[in-house]
Amino acid sequence: MSYAGQASASAASASSRSRSRDGDSVYVQDSMFVSEAVKRIQQCTAEIRKEANLLAPSTSAAARKKVEATLHTGNQAVQDAKRRLEKLSYNGGDTFGEQRNRSLMQQKLSENLTKGIRDLQVSFQVFEQAEKRLAEMPTTTPQRPTEDLEMGSLPAGQGRLQATADLVSEAELDVHTAIVEEYAQDISTLAQDVRGLQQAMADLSFHTKVQGDLLDSIEGDFLSSTQNTANASEQLTQASHSQRRGSKFIYWLLLLAAVLAVILIFVVVYRSSQ
């Protein structure tokens, strides 16, 4: 449908004029940029930690290169974020409330960034330590811990291997038993949760039945809110009146007490003088 009667000349010209902005969009962009930078730093930290865990003699050189590149990216993100964060402080809001919100927002972003930088540094230190440990280790093929067990009592050769295999199987069994137990416990918890959920659904269904139709009218809502406001206003007026009445009563009491005290003093003085 096309709409007849478009804007009149004078008001249409008013409509086409652009309004001066208060820097809202710049502020939002900056704060979003800092949040994104913190995210990037966290990703870099995770990447470095992963490399530290997977570090092996054969891949250590490549890993070092990769970690350095990631650290560089992370540092760049840190620098960018710091710059934007500083800029953010100059974009003040119009009202006091807005300024307070912005200050809180800046504080939060700053905390996130500091934490991100610390995590990045710690992860790099962890990587370096892992690298150092790897360098200190003998160049022999790594052996499974079970093979280093003291087996002095066993005969050499096949008997020693058999005992090792038994120990391995026992350890594996223990691990599997623990997993099964944990799994069974999880299932039990889940079943309990499902029962709870079922009860919640039954309750919800019951409440739904007893609930009536709600007023879904713009005019009705407006009228009821106006009515409620009027009632609240009336209550406040009543409260104010009764408070004023109460205060008046206390003042009168105080005046009466003062008058009585004066009379009493006067009588005492008069009697004592007599």
């Binding site: 709409y3 007849a4 009667g5 478009q6 804007a7 009149s8 008001a11 249409a12 008013a14 409509s15 004029r17 309004r19």
Partner: peptide, 12 residues
């Protein structure tokens, strides 16, 4: 409209 806040005027 001193603050130029009126963006459009229409007849519906």
């Amino acid at each position: 409209d001193e603050y130029e806040l009126v963006k459009q005027v229409q007849e519906f």
